[in-house]
Design a protein around this nucleic acid. Structure first.
Lengths: 137, 137
DNA sequence: TCTTATTGTTTGGTATTCAAGATGTATTAT
DNA sequence: ATAATACATCTTGAATACCAAACAATAAGA
């Protein structure tokens, strides 16, 4: 790797927690609750194990997070007859509304971040991120 | 913002903790210790306040982190005559070695991440990241 | 039926962080 | 010179986040 590229590219991996802090300040959600909300907003119903996997944490951790979302009335557990071990998590109306707000805030921040780029640059940047496939990291 | 770009760009802000976990597994460092080590490796001597600022945390938090680095013999505090309130933090030999290893690991991971890109793409990607100036987020 | 696998919860412990207060030292104003 | 103020750092108390391992209930297979 060429030395003049290193700094930005290394930095790429670091320090992305500051925007999470702004979520905490701007909403009634903690960071882990906000992460869970992001996943729940994309799924009508999802069980604890899948949710934990998508969040990249253990089911024990997810239990606690969902407990809190339930206590705050953002989500609720629903049991199913097919398998009585399973809980499906669904957003309440309040949860759906919070998801929309959070999502809009996320979009707004992203727009602000790329606002210094031209349309072509945004497209190129996006293609590159897609190629890099960050989900594997 | 055009809808087809949204997913990647939003994802850009999320989920960069997984590589940090691999640091913890691959070394004797916790995440906050590794962050501090990154800063300390770039500075011969740095005081607590500057270190805290560069880490984006309070000095109280930094005290705890440096305590642990000191206990593990990665760094040590040095006092100065000019101002006896101040502690300058410096890496020990063990700390310097750990920094090099950590840094190499960081580079290796970054190289792996951009290995799917052409030279031109890497350059363009790098320029774009510079423009975005992620340090403000 | 008995054993094994799976889903989710609980428990005990560590890490990370902040806010607010305390301590010691330096600087400034009187 | 003394008093007031500012500053660097540390300490304390509390909240959040997380994991590993043990546990409970249910499902599935031999």
């Amino acid at each position: 790797m060429r030395e003049e590229l290193t700094n930005e590219l290394l930095f790429f991996f670091n320090g992305f927690s500051s925007w999470e802090n702004s979520i905490v300040r701007a909403s009634d959600l903690t960071i882990s609750e906000a992460h869970a909300l992001e996943v729940l907003g994309e799924h009508e119903k999802i069980n604890m194990k899948s949710l934990a996997q998508k969040l990249g944490v253990t089911t024990g951790t997810t239990t606690v997070t969902v407990d809190r979302l339930e206590k705050k009335n953002f989500a609720k557990r629903e049991s199913i007859q097919e398998d009585r071990r399973v809980n499906l998590i669904v957003l309440t109306e309040k949860g759906k509304k919070a998801f929309e707000e959070h999502h809009n805030y996320h979009i707004q921040l992203t727009e602000q971040m790329v606002s210094v780029l031209s349309e072509d640059e945004i497209k190129q940047f996006n293609d590159t991120l897609k190629k890099i496939n960050m989900e594997t990291f």
